[in-house]
């Protein structure tokens, strides 16, 4: 506990040297909790979105329920769950999954709806069944939108894990909270920066995976870039001609 007038720096290597193990432990918890929540949420959201796509009459109820889950604050959701699922990882995990659901379902539905109708027509003309079309034509074409949803969901989940301190399982949030109680600035600042870094890193990772998973988008980007270059060159030439 630091009192007034005692040196209490925001950043200190000394803190990491002394409490490195603890920081690492919470960072691992934070990361694993985030990844687990996103994987579970994606496993639920993708089928739900496909159901919405195939039978639009489910769109209202599914988007409505996930919307309500999204509006209820995490703090309250943990409080609603805690009496039944106890204090700890399960409660936090359920809350995180509930939050990621809306973003993932909505983005997947938008992605599926945005598939070029000509492509769908071509697949239908080739005699594709509805299921095969969904899995091999529509879903791959919706990937950019799905990855956009995954990025938003992942970054917000990293931030949301910290609210888990309410039920004693908040990953790096645990360190922030304890740092606040003992007025230990280095502990708060370090865990806050690690949270931001983790969000940034996972976001970057998703960008790379998205690039690898949608090679055609890369081709298209390159084509657009060369087109733009060509046009600029053309403008240069005409300027020369005018001169």
């Amino acid at each position: 506990m630091y009192g007034r007038g005692v040196d209490n720096p925001w950043l200190s290597l000394d803190y990491l040297r002394r409490s490195g193990d603890e920081v690492w432990e919470q960072l691992v918890i934070h990361t694993s909790l985030t990844l687990q929540a996103i994987l579970i949420a994606a496993a639920i959201a993708l089928p739900l979105a496909m159901v919405v796509r195939r039978s639009p009459r489910f769109a209202g109820p599914i988007l409505g329920i996930t919307g309500v889950l999204y509006t209820v604050p995490s703090f309250a959701l943990f409080a609603l769950l805690a009496p039944f699922t106890g204090i700890g990882r399960t409660t936090v995990l359920i809350g995180l999954v509930a939050y990621a659901l809306l973003v993932l379902v909505r983005n997947t539905v938008v992605g599926l709806q945005g598939v070029d109708p000509d492509i769908v027509d071509a697949a239908r003309g080739l005699g594709y069944s509805r299921t095969r079309m969904l899995l091999t034509v529509e879903l791959p074409n919706a990937l950019p939108s799905i990855f956009a949803g995954l990025r938003i969901a992942t970054v917000s989940t990293v931030a949301l894990v910290t609210v888990g301190v309410v039920v004693g399982y908040g990953g790096l949030g645990q360190l922030m909270f304890r740092g606040m109680q003992s007025n230990y600035r280095a502990q708060i600042a370090t865990s806050a920066l690690l949270c931001l870094a983790l969000a940034l890193l996972l976001d970057l990772l998703l960008v790379l995976i998205a690039r690898w998973a949608t090679p055609w988008a890369r081709e298209r980007r390159r084509a657009r870039r060369s087109l733009r270059g060509g046009r600029a060159g053309g403008a240069g030439r005409s300027a020369e001609a005018a001169a």
Binding site: A159, T162, V163, G173, F177, C195
Partner: peptide, 16 residues
């Protein structure tokens, strides 16, 4: 950036 920043981080930073 505001999406990545945990509210708790800001609150505890303020408190200290």
């Amino acid at each position: 950036v505001s999406r990545a920043m945990p509210t708790l981080a800001l609150l505890t930073l303020f408190a200290a």
